[in-house]
C-alpha cells in the first residue's frame, strides 16, 4: 500500500511536469504541423531565467510570493521574446518547405538557444531551491514528499483547465480548432492564419518555458539538461497523439507512472521502457492514442 501510494505520487509529480512541457509541444504541432525541437530551448531558458530571479530574490530575502511571480514572468518573457523572433523571422519563411527541413531548422535553433545560455548565464549549475525549501516536506503514505513538487500537480490541473476553457469556450479557441482541423478551409473562411500561427507558437513557447521555470527549484539547472527533456516530451506527445490536448494528458500520465514504477522496481529499465512504449504505440496506433480527428478530403 505504502509502495503504491509512493509510486503514484512520484508518477503524478513527474507526469504533471511532463504535461506542462509537452502541452506546448502538442499545441504547436496541432496548429502549425511543426515538430519543434527548439521547445527544449524554451524549457531551458525558462528554467534559467526563473533560477537567477529566484536566487536573487532568495539571497536578498524578498517576500516568497515573489518567487511564483518570477516563475510566471520568466515563462511569459521567454515565450514572447524567443517565440516572436523564431516564428516571425525564421519559421514563417519556411511553411511551404518540407516538414523535415522545418524540424531540422528547429534543431539548429535548439543548438543556438543552448549555447546562448552559456554566454548569458554562465556554466555553473544553478540551484534556486528557496521555494522548495520554504514549503518543506509533508508525510504522505509513510514517507516525506516535497510540498513544492506536489504543487506541480495543482499547476498542471490549472493549466489543463485553462486550456480546455480556452479551446472550448472562447471564440479564439474555436478559431484555433478550425485551423487544427483544416487549415485551407480556415483560410478561405477568412481566418488570419499568419496571426494564429504567431500566437500559437508564442503560447507553446510560454508553456515550455513554464515547465522549465516551475521545475527549476527542485533540480540542478545546468547546461545541456534540456536535451533529455526534448525527447521525453516527444515521447509523451507521440503516445498521446500528436496535436491532441487530452492526448498530452494521458501521454504524460502513462510516461510518468511507468517511469516511477520502473525506478522503484527495475531501475535499469527506466529509460528503455518509456521509448519502448512510444514505439509500441506507434506500431499499433501510429496516430497516437488520442489522435485529433482528421478532415475527410476527396
Amino acid at each position: 500500500m505504502q509502495f503504491l501510494i509512493t509510486v503514484l505520487l512520484d508518477g503524478l509529480i513527474y507526469a504533471s511536469y511532463l504535461f506542462i512541457v509537452s502541452l506546448g509541444l502538442t499545441i504547436t504541432f496541432g496548429v502549425m504541423k511543426i515538430l519543434n525541437v527548439a521547445h527544449g530551448g524554451f524549457f531551458a531558458w525558462g528554467a534559467y531565467l526563473a533560477s537567477i530571479s529566484i536566487i536573487y530574490l532568495g539571497d536578498n530575502e524578498y517576500n516568497s510570493f515573489l518567487y511564483y511571480f518570477a516563475i510566471f514572468l520568466s515563462a511569459i518573457i521567454v515565450g514572447l521574446f524567443f517565440g516572436y523572433i523564431i516564428e516571425r523571422f525564421i519559421l514563417r519563411k519556411m511553411y511551404n518547405e518540407d516538414i523535415h527541413l522545418i524540424v531540422l531548422a528547429t534543431f539548429g535553433l535548439f543548438w543556438i538557444l543552448e549555447d546562448l545560455i552559456l554566454h548569458v548565464f554562465g556554466v555553473d549549475p544553478l540551484m534556486p531551491y528557496y521555494p522548495a525549501m520554504e514549503l518543506g516536506g509533508i508525510e504522505l503514505g509513510g514517507i516525506f514528499q516535497g510540498v513544492y513538487s506536489l504543487t506541480l500537480a495543482g499547476l498542471a490541473i490549472i493549466v489543463a483547465f485553462i486550456c480546455w476553457y480556452f479551446l472550448k469556450k472562447t471564440k479564439y479557441g474555436k478559431v484555433l480548432q478550425s485551423v487544427i482541423f483544416d487549415r485551407e478551409v480556415s483560410v478561405s473562411m477568412g481566418i488570419n492564419v499568419t496571426k494564429v500561427y504567431l500566437i500559437t507558437f508564442i503560447i507553446g513557447g510560454m508553456l515550455g518555458a513554464l515547465g522549465g521555470a516551475y521545475i527549476a527549484p527542485t533540480i540542478s539547472v545546468s547546461p545541456g539538461f534540456a536535451i533529455d527533456v526534448v525527447v521525453m516530451s516527444f515521447a509523451v506527445v507521440v503516445i498521446g497523439g500528436m496535436g491532441s490536448v487530452p492526448g498530452a494528458l494521458i501521454g504524460s500520465l502513462i510516461v510518468g507512472l511507468v517511469r516511477a514504477f520502473a525506478v522503484h522496481q527495475a531501475p535499469i529499465l527506466e529509460l528503455f521502457i518509456i521509448y519502448a512504449i512510444m514505439a509500441i504505440v506507434l506500431i499499433i496506433k501510429p496516430e497516437g492514442l488520442f489522435a485529433p480527428p482528421k478532415p475527410r478530403k476527396i
Binding site: I90, A105, F107, G108, F110, W111, I112, D115, H119
Partner: peptide, 11 residues
C-alpha cells in the same frame, strides 16, 4: 559557442 556555430551553419 561551437553548438551555436553548427546551428547557425545549419540555418
Amino acid at each position: 559557442a561551437w553548438q551555436m556555430i553548427i546551428g547557425g551553419t545549419l540555418l
